[in-house]
Design a protein around this nucleic acid. Structure first.
Length: 404
DNA sequence: AAATTTGACAACCGCCCCCTG
DNA sequence: CCAGGGGGCGGTTGTCAAATT
């Protein structure tokens, strides 16, 4: 392998981007879309390789980036998602609109890891450090392409007998291998989760579609409410709690809170704004517009997303007015904080769950102040039926990716 | 005030996957 | 079927400013 051919080209600049370069790239993509990234620098008059341009766009210039410090909810989500997904930053980022994988990765490495350790939690295994496997800085083994020796899997392998009474759950249908000494895999849980989620027809949406207002898997299906309305995520939680290390703190930290976030978003966020934005058909968004919301994880399945849709510059600008979702979310935002599921979430955050309570008893708060900025800019966006159909297909791809 | 440390962020590198010819 | 290129991801390094000594 090695460097891409474009990187061998001569006289390519490296290092920090100058404002002039940013402007060139921004103007170019604004006007033409990125198309083939390898051709972008040439067309934009930049002495950069295409990958560098792509990275700059995705991590810095994209108009929908939220920037700024992470909110408490976002940090929670990251922790929760990391417990399930490991170092799959792009997938984690897909659950956090406006955030990039790089941003989340940096936050994790520089901040959250430290905080978790201070709380006595191994950031890699999400287990208490005393029980952790050394607590080294190795990435969790459930990350990466091969997840054979997942630390999560180890957790999942614990016997049901360890289930604390408070977390007892009805017998649930594990695969036929439930009698198998080998515990259900994380893939199984993901599969279970997705299955449950897909079959959750009782999951009546609030008008704001839950914390992240993400499109559902199918047009006719109610939007996910996320936290707890649907019984299925709860069931999944119970399953998980049964199989995870029966340290209650870990259970709550690593799994229970996964449910609200994952259940409301994992299946659908890879579609991002692409499906959530309701645009007039006669004014299709420019490609970069779409890409902006399509954070990353669905990129491989999106196939044609990078093929350079030409866009008229006259219809596209960054002056703010061209991003309706930014305004659309204002009212929804207010509503969100009063959603039942949000209240449940608050309960968790305020100590209704053991881990949260334990954390709050620590002398130092795990999380910083909640900022009053727009937390989730995509909340409340309308999902057009035709877009929902696209969302369904994309979600299926995403699910497949998760399970595989 | 200068030197050093620390933290946050930006960018690069190497690898992998997928698509296409 | 295979090789090459493009796109993407995760890990790592570099940079800079703030904090500390």
């Amino acid at each position: 392998m090695g460097r891409h051919s474009c990187c061998y080209k001569q006289k390519l600049r490296k290092g920090l981007w100058s404002p002039e370069e940013d402007e060139k790239l921004l103007k170019h993509i604004t006007k033409y879309g990125h198309g083939c990234w390898s051709s972008v620098p040439k067309q934009a008059g930049l002495q950069r390789c295409g990958k560098s341009c792509r990275l700059r766009w995705i991590n810095y210039l994209r108009p929908d980036l939220k920037r700024g410090t992470f909110s408490m909810q976002e940090e929670n989500m990251i922790i929760e998602l990391h417990a399930v997904l490991g170092n799959r930053w792009s997938q984690i980022a897909a659950q956090l609109p406006g955030r990039t994988d790089n941003e989340i990765k940096n936050l994790w490495n520089s901040c959250i890891k430290k905080k978790l350790r201070q709380r006595g939690i191994d950031p890699n295994t999400h287990k208490p450090l005393a029980e952790g496997e050394g607590g080294d800085d190795k990435a969790p083994t459930n990350s990466g392409k091969t997840s054979g020796g997942s630390s999560d899997l180890k957790l999942l392998a614990l016997p049901p007998s360890a289930t604390p009474p408070s977390l007892a759950l009805p017998e649930t249908s594990f695969p036929s291998s439930s009698s198998n000494p080998t515990a259900p895999t994380k893939e199984f849980f993901l599969d279970r989760f997705f299955t449950n989620h897909e079959s959750s027809s009782s999951c009546r949406p609030s008008n704001s579609m839950g914390l992240f207002s993400l499109p559902q898997l199918s047009p006719g299906r109610e939007a996910a409410t996320g936290l707890s309305v649907s019984p299925n995520p709860l069931l999944w939680f119970n399953q998980s709690s049964r199989l995870f290390d029966m340290n209650p703190e870990y259970n709550c930290n690593a799994m229970s809170t996964v449910i609200p976030s994952v259940s409301s978003s994992v299946l659908s966020t890879s579609m991002g704004l692409k499906t959530a934005i309701n645009l007039p058909p006669d004014n299709p968004p420019p490609e970069c517009y779409w890409e902006a919301g399509n954070i990353s994880s669905s990129s491989r399945s999106s196939g044609t997303s990078g093929n350079g849709i030409e866009l008229p510059s006259s219809n596209y600008s960054y002056d703010g007015g061209m991003y309706p979702w930014l305004d659309m979310t204002q009212d929804k935002e207010t509503q969100l904080h009063q959603e039942p599921e949000d209240l449940r979430w608050s309960e968790y955050l305020n100590g209704a769950f053991p881990i949260s309570a334990a954390l709050q008893n620590q002398s130092q708060p795990l999380y910083g102040d909640v900022k009053d900025e727009n937390q989730f800019a995509t909340a409340g966006l309308v999902l057009a039926p035709e877009s929902a159909a696209t969302a369904t297909a994309a979600a299926a791809t995403t699910v497949a990716k998760f399970i595989v």
